Each structure stands twice: as structure tokens, then as C-alpha cells.
Simulated scan of single mutants.
Amino acid sequence: MNGNGYTRMEGDYIIRHHRHETRDNQCSSALVKHIKAPVHLNYSSVITLHPEIIDGRPGTLVIESFVVDVPDGNTKDETCYFVEALINCNLKSLADVSERLAVQDRTEPIGRI
């Protein structure tokens, strides 16, 4: 372990793939979980953020896609439903926090700036 609580390997991956430049009013974290299974069995996802205009104001379109193995005894539909529910919960939390910050910032409608 190094001074920040990560092993050298974890720290190297975090520095390479998860570095964020934060402002004074921001925080950042990286969560680590070791799973006793090879990578090709583990969950895979892509998340992208795209600017858009919502109700005349700057907004963000978030798209997350995933691939996950269907466990024995489950159907594809059951597995997708479960994973989609988890992702939707996370995206709702992201939206709630971001929209609360946007209201505090009082983002002006497009064309009034």
C-alpha cells in the first residue's frame, strides 16, 4: 500500500485512466474492487456524455451501454432488467446531484448569456 491506500498496481491504473483535475468546489474518488474471476467474464460498459439543450438551457445527454454474462438460472431479459435497474438508479443519482448544482449555479437560458 502507498500513502493513499492503493497498491502500486491500483495506483498505476488510477493515474493512467482515472485522473481528474478538480476545482476548489469539487472532489474526486476512485473505488476499487478485486473480483476473483478473469476480466473477460467481468461486466463491461461504456458511458458517454454529450452536450444538448433542454428547455432552452445547457444540458447533458448521458448514454451508458453494457455487456454482462447471463448467470445460470436467469434469462437474458431478467439479467438485462436487473442491470438496467442498477444503472438507472446510478444515472438518477447523477442527474439529481448535477441538477441541484446547476440550479445553484443558475445556468442562464441559451441566447441570454
Rank of each mutant, 00 (worst) to 15 (best):
M1H: 06
M1W: 04
N2Y: 06
N2F: 04
N2H: 05
G3T: 05
G3F: 04
Y6R: 11
T7S: 13
R8F: 08
M9E: 11
M9Q: 10
E10G: 07
E10N: 06
G11A: 09
Y13Q: 11
I14S: 05
I15S: 14
R16L: 09
R16I: 02
R16A: 10
R16V: 04
R16N: 10
H17R: 08
H18A: 13
H18Q: 11
H18M: 14
H18L: 13
R19C: 15
R19W: 14
H20P: 06
H20C: 14
E21F: 02
E21N: 07
E21H: 04
E21K: 03
T22Q: 06
T22G: 03
T22Y: 02
R23M: 09
D24A: 13
D24H: 09
D24R: 07
N25Y: 01
N25R: 05
N25M: 02
Q26I: 03
Q26H: 06
C27Y: 11
S28Q: 03
A30V: 07
L31A: 13
L31V: 11
L31W: 09
L31D: 09
V32R: 09
V32L: 06
K33A: 14
H34G: 04
H34N: 11
H34Y: 13
H34K: 09
H34C: 08
K36W: 03
K36C: 00
A37K: 04
P38D: 00
H40W: 10
H40P: 13
L41F: 02
N42K: 09
Y43Q: 02
S44R: 08
S44P: 00
S45I: 02
L49K: 01
L49P: 00
L49I: 00
P51D: 01
P51V: 00
P51A: 00
P51W: 00
P51Y: 01
P51K: 00
E52M: 06
I53T: 07
I53G: 12
I54E: 00
G56D: 02
G56T: 00
G56L: 01
R57F: 01
P58W: 02
P58H: 01
T60G: 05
T60D: 04
T60H: 06
L61F: 03
S65C: 12
S65A: 10
F66W: 05
F66Y: 12
V67P: 11
V68L: 00
P71E: 13
D72K: 11
D72F: 11
G73A: 02
G73E: 03
T75D: 11
K76W: 08
E78Q: 12
T79I: 11
T79S: 11
C80K: 06
Y81W: 12
Y81T: 08
V83P: 08
V83T: 10
A85N: 12
A85Y: 09
A85Q: 11
L86Q: 12
I87S: 02
N88M: 10
N88W: 05
C89I: 07
K92T: 14
S93N: 15
D96L: 15
D96V: 07
D96G: 09
S98P: 04
R100Q: 05
L101Y: 13
V103I: 04
D105G: 15
D105H: 15
D105F: 15
R106K: 14
T107C: 14
E108R: 14
E108F: 15
I110Q: 13
I110E: 15
G111R: 03
G111Q: 07
R112M: 13
I113E: 06
I113G: 12
